[in-house]
Each structure stands twice: as structure tokens, then as C-alpha cells.
Design a protein around this nucleic acid. Structure first.
Lengths: 110, 110
DNA sequence: CTTATGTTTCGATAATACTAGAAACATGAA
DNA sequence: TTCATGTTTCTAGTATTATCGAAACATAAG
């Protein structure tokens, strides 16, 4: 993980619609949701949703999976874990709080 | 934690200079660093640095502490933990991956 | 092939964020 | 008080991002 990647991922999450999309997918799990279902649940215009899904995908926070004429999106927990790890890297210079500081995986699946 | 707070915090971190500032402070720990030291280490203009510190402070990601004519900034790990918890709330609908999904505190200090 | 459905791209507008010089303010030292 | 140092506010220019209607594209069913 490098700075550029981290900023890209944080930027992807730092927006109302995208954060809602990501959390919805996290709650759904590895199975994911297709674009239409996300649209129905969140009520954003198709073009807007597509734009945001592209941002999240480009940042690596979600992964698309084609299934017939539907495209299912699911969260990438590895990316999430890597991001948290980057944010807390070498916390407190490795002193005192060390044991509690070590970043812990958020979800091992997927 | 609510959506607005989460977006504010993510936005605070989703920028090169601010992410660098935050990570620098995380690595320094609760003691923190004063503005001048941050400026020296990162090489951003005073006005720009002040702007970014205000953003981080307003988002609750860092806390200022006046000490003589210096102002020390330190990270707020509680805010960090709350943010991660919000992102992974009810991961996978509480099924299968549940044990590994539960978000874990990043740092208990401070 | 034709039609219906799901999704993305294009294009244009509006809103928001980043940057930094100059001036102002705050604190402590002489 | 006067000066030096540390930090913030003001202001304005530039760049980036969000939104969405309309049109285009993709896949599958009839």
C-alpha cells in the first residue's frame, strides 16, 4: 500500500452515495448486489450510480462480477484491511500501546 | 457515528497532505507534534498546513493542545476506531464470517 | 431478427476543495 | 514595551468532483 492508493481508496469512501453503496455491500457480504438492486435501495440516478461504482471499483474497494446481463458488486475486504493497516502503520512509534495498536483484519472472507 | 460524521472523517483523510499529517501524528503517538515541526517534516506552506489541520480537527481526527506558544496536535484513536466500526457495521449481515468481521479497536490509548 | 431490460458513456452545469501570499493575531523573551 | 517567533485568517485564483438527462451499448428472451 502506498499513499496514492490510500488516498484513492479514502476518496472513494468519502462521499455520501459511495459510502452508502459500500456499507450496503459490506452488509450484504461476498454474494453482492446487482446495480439495479443498489439503485432501488438507494434511489440514485442510473448514470450517477454508474459513476460512483466506477470510482469504487477503480479504487479497488469493490469488485464487479458479471452474471448474465446483471453485474454484481461485492466489497473487497482485503483492500479495506490494507487501508486500515496503512492508516495505523507503526502506531506510536512501536512503543507502549503497541499490543493494542496493531491493526486487525476487518473480515477474512473474500 | 452517523453518515455525515463518517464522510467528514473520510474526507479529512482523503487528501495527500492531510493523510501524511495524520500518519505522522499516529506514528508520533499521544505526545503529538507542534505545527512548526509538522511543517518542517512535510514542507507545506503555513497557510496550507493550518487549513488542513483545521479540517482534521473539525473532523475530530486530531486534537490540538496549547503549550506555551506552540500548539501540539495528536491523533484521536477513538475517532479512528469509531470510523472503522462504522465502515464494517453488520458485515455480511451477521452471518458466517461474523467472528472475523467484528471490527477491532486500532489503538486503546488516548 | 426484434424487443425488453440492465448498465454505461457523453456532455454540460453546478458545487466544492486545494493552494498560498499577505496581513493579522498570540505568546513569550529581552 | 518592543521584538521575534509560531500560527491563523482573509482573499482569490485554479482545479477537481458530483449530478443527471439523453443516447449508446450489451445481454438475453421471444
Amino acid at each position: 500500500m502506498n499513499t496514492k492508493t490510500a488516498v484513492t481508496r479514502l476518496t472513494a469512501l468519502a462521499q455520501d452515495s459511495r459510502l452508502a453503496i459500500f456499507r450496503l455491500l459490506v452488509q450484504k457480504g461476498p454474494e453482492g448486489l446487482c446495480v439495479g438492486d443498489i439503485q432501488t435501495k438507494l434511489g440514485v440516478a442510473p448514470a450517477t450510480l454508474s459513476f460512483h461504482l466506477k470510482e469504487l471499483t477503480h479504487a479497488g474497494m469493490v469488485k464487479p462480477r458479471q452474471e448474465g446481463r446483471f453485474i454484481y458488486y461485492s466489497p473487497d475486504f482485503k483492500a479495506m484491511n490494507a487501508l486500515v493497516a496503512y492508516l495505523t502503520e507503526n502506531c506510536c512509534g512501536g512503543r507502549s500501546c503497541d499490543p493494542e495498536c496493531a491493526p486487525t483484519p476487518v473480515c477474512k472472507e473474500n
